Simulated scan of single mutants.
Amino acid sequence: MKIGQLAQHTGCGVETIRYYEQIGLLPPPLRNSSNYRVYGAEHHERLLFVRHCRSLDMSLDEIRTLLALREEPRQGCQQVNTLLDRHIEEIEQRMAALNDLRTRLDSLRRQCNGDHPVEECAIIQGLSHCAQCDGSPAEPLHHEHTAATF
Rank of each mutant, 00 (worst) to 15 (best):
M1K: 00
L108W: 04
D100P: 02
L105R: 05
F49W: 08
M95Y: 01
R74L: 13
A138I: 05
A7P: 06
Y20M: 03
T16A: 10
D57H: 15
H44N: 11
A122Q: 13
V50I: 14
I63E: 03
P117T: 02
S107I: 05
V118C: 01
L127A: 04
R104D: 11
R109Q: 15
R64V: 01
Q111R: 10
A122W: 01
E120Y: 05
A138L: 10
E72V: 06
V14G: 00
G76N: 11
C77R: 13
L67N: 03
R110L: 12
R102G: 04
A147Q: 07
H142E: 08
L6E: 05
V14H: 08
Q79V: 00
A97R: 10
G114H: 12
N113S: 12
L26I: 09
A41Q: 12
E42A: 12
V38N: 11
R110W: 05
L84C: 07
Y36R: 09
Q8D: 11
L26T: 05
H9S: 00
L48V: 05
E21P: 14
A97N: 08
P117G: 02
T103K: 12
D57V: 07
P117L: 02
V50H: 02
S59V: 11
E21W: 13
N113C: 15
G11W: 13
R109G: 15
E89C: 07
L69Y: 01
A131H: 05
Q22M: 15
V14T: 05
I123K: 02
H143S: 13
R86S: 13
D85T: 09
P29S: 07
D115W: 10
S34M: 11
A148P: 14
V14D: 08
M95R: 13
R104I: 04
I88Y: 08
R51W: 03
R31E: 07
L69F: 00
L26D: 04
R18C: 05
L127M: 14
A131M: 06
Q22S: 15
L105T: 06
G40Q: 00
Q125D: 05
L30I: 13
F150L: 14
L141H: 04
N113Y: 06
A96F: 03
A148M: 15
R37D: 11
L48Y: 01
E139Q: 14
S34F: 08
R104K: 14
R64N: 01
N35V: 01
T10D: 10
G114Y: 08
N35G: 05
E21D: 14
C53Q: 09
G4C: 04
L108T: 08
Q132A: 07
N35D: 10
N113M: 10
E139L: 12
L56T: 12
N99V: 14
N99L: 12
A97E: 13
A7D: 10
T149D: 00
C130S: 14
L127F: 02
A148S: 15
L105P: 06
S136P: 01
R46G: 03
R109Y: 12
L83P: 03
S33C: 06
T82L: 13
G24N: 06
G114L: 07
T146V: 11
D61A: 09
E21Y: 15
L141W: 03
R110Q: 15
R74M: 10
Y19Q: 07
T149S: 13
R86V: 07
H142K: 09
S107K: 06
E90M: 09
L101S: 12
